[in-house]
Design a protein around this nucleic acid. Structure first.
Lengths: 332, 332
DNA sequence: CTGAAAGCGCTTACAG
DNA sequence: CTGAAAGCGCTTACAG
């Protein structure tokens, strides 16, 4: 592979001039730039990112920290995020957060990532602290944390849940079950609180024995539904922490031959593409996940490039209820 | 962040000794190693990967080249692949192949990737050639290419399709439609050929007007099914290039109120987790996609580390038929 | 067993 | 407008 020295030799200039010319430095004359570009093209030269990173102390590599890459949800955030990053000349490195988060922060620094998007911060996690210590810019995606302030993109569940709860009340549901997300994440907490508050406003009680928690995955939904449905007085509706959980609930219901929504209604949150499939038709709360993913990338880049205000930026996305086939009148 | 110089100063040794000690170089005495490790720990030092990469000319960063990150399929390859790479001390960088593939190869070199996994090589693509030119190790995932030999992991569709075709024949299907994958990929080609050959062995004809092609996505299935189902003599069975396409076909069928498998049978290929959901129950051809993804990572790492035989390694995975609810007796 | 020197491929003050 | 020099943080012959 050609280096800037090769280009310099061919163009008859010094190596630093090659560096400047190709970055379109205004101090280099047009004539010189022409020559350098021609020489670079002739040699098929592209600046080496490693050399640049070492020299500038900054790369264009962004880390995306996730817990569960198997989760369908991430597919829909990775795609637009990667797209936005690429468009702006950055790269996406996948990082899974293991239980020990200190290594992650070291890893990030050692690998010269210019910033990190945290999709997975457990409340009270030390990772944000570590990143801050090491002065690595980061943004919270769909999460926040109390200990460390930083840019964030989140969702306001209230508008969507308000509409949803109205539909629930209109359909006459009173025996309600819930399979919420983990209690140690802000996403789980915020959604649960919205549902609880708004149900209460409608005078609907959520019995604590009908409320379950677990990771935002299919199995949580399956096993949660199993517990709730095998009772003598099963709920007529199960509210879920997200769509993936709701799919698990549907799976359990169908397996038991329980008609949805005839005998059981199910509601999710996220409105993933699969929820709209004709043989799923999951009623759910939606928001613009794609735009939200892009916004996370944008916030991070702005921060990395020093274009952000010193104070943390918080973008909040609106939600709305999407009525489909899995929420219907309460069973007799 | 501390550098090896800081550690050297604290440990009272030279910087190269720090470098050697931390890599556990046998030429360094145990006593010195102890001191260096202690100093490194005290400073929270971790070797800088950028410096190392520049110096060795090799990183531990692997690129995964995909076309369509939105496709559900990739979720199931990214997760295990990332897991295997991480386990072996490598990192995963996402790369989408745009139409122009020369830039991709340059990008790979400029960013010092140590190797690349190609999931998406179109037959006749120049990317493999470019990578070979630049001496970047790579492996074909689920694809091969004629022009350039390289390590590969692929699937042999024959065993699974043989079983499948037997079931199809036993159920008495004769009016058969197909929505195959793209004709410009080896995966699409190989699967289609297997289906054609094995149907022919059973004396079943696949009318060319009933055979459609398209990208391996949901929309291909939806629109393909629309075409086939709106005919006066619709097929009693639609064979699909993969599960995602089959889901699209199911979607179109359900939307039209067509009973599956009463009036229409549908079969996929891949056996993605969603195909097993109780409300999907897609009959399909399965193979060990997770193990296959890990194997791709392993082959690449072995190649990168010079542990592979000079001749390309080809791992081929077995397939089998998974009967579920979407393949039944041919409609009257 | 350890250190001094050189170099990987860039960028960035500093001169001129 | 351009070049010579130094340095980013490592590794790797080369001496000793």
């Amino acid at each position: 592979m050609a280096t800037s020295h090769d280009v310099a030799r061919l163009a008859g200039v010094s190596q630093p001039t090659v560096s400047r010319a190709l970055r379109d430095d205004p101090r280099v004359s047009e004539a010189t730039k022409q020559q350098v570009r021609a020489a670079a093209a002739a040699l098929g030269y592209a600046p080496n990112a490693i050399g640049r990173a070492l020299s500038t102390g900054r790369s264009t590599r962004v880390g995306l920290v996730v817990t569960d890459l198997h989760n369908q949800f991430y597919q829909h955030v990775i795609a637009p995020m990667h797209d936005e990053l690429t468009k702006q000349g950055y790269e996406l490195l996948l990082i899974t957060e293991s239980s020990e988060s200190a290594p992650v922060a070291d890893h990030v620094v050692a690998n010269g990532l210019c910033g990190v998007i945290l999709t997975t911060t457990i409340l009270g996690s030390v990772l944000p602290v570590r990143l801050q210590d090491r002065q690595v810019p980061f943004v919270y995606f769909n999460r926040t944390a109390r200990n460390v302030e930083a840019d964030s993109v989140t969702v306001d569940p209230v508008p969507g849940v308000t509409e949803l709860v109205k539909a629930v009340a209109d359909f006459g549901h009173t025996r309600i079950g819930a399979v919420f997300g983990p209690q140690n994440t802000s996403t789980g907490e915020v959604r649960e609180q919205a549902v609880r508050d708004l149900l209460q406003d409608k005078g609907i009680t959520l019995l604590s024995r009908n409320v379950l928690h677990g990771p935002f995955d299919f199995e949580t939904g399956r096993s949660g539904a199993a517990k709730l449905l095998d009772r003598s007085d099963p709920p007529t509706l199960i509210l879920c922490g997200n769509d993936v959980v709701a799919l698990g609930v549907l799976d359990a219901a169908v397996e038991r031959g329980i008609d949805v929504p005839g005998r059981l209604s199910v509601v999710g949150f996220d409105d993933l593409p699969s929820s709209a499939w004709a043989f799923v038709q999951l009623s759910t709360v939606a928001y613009d996940l794609e735009e939200m993913s892009r916004e996370a990338a944008r916030l991070l880049i702005a921060r990395v490039e020093g274009r952000s205000a010193t104070v943390p930026q918080h973008t909040v996305f609106d939600t709305w209820y999407v009525p489909r086939a899995t929420l219907g009148p309460a069973a007799g």
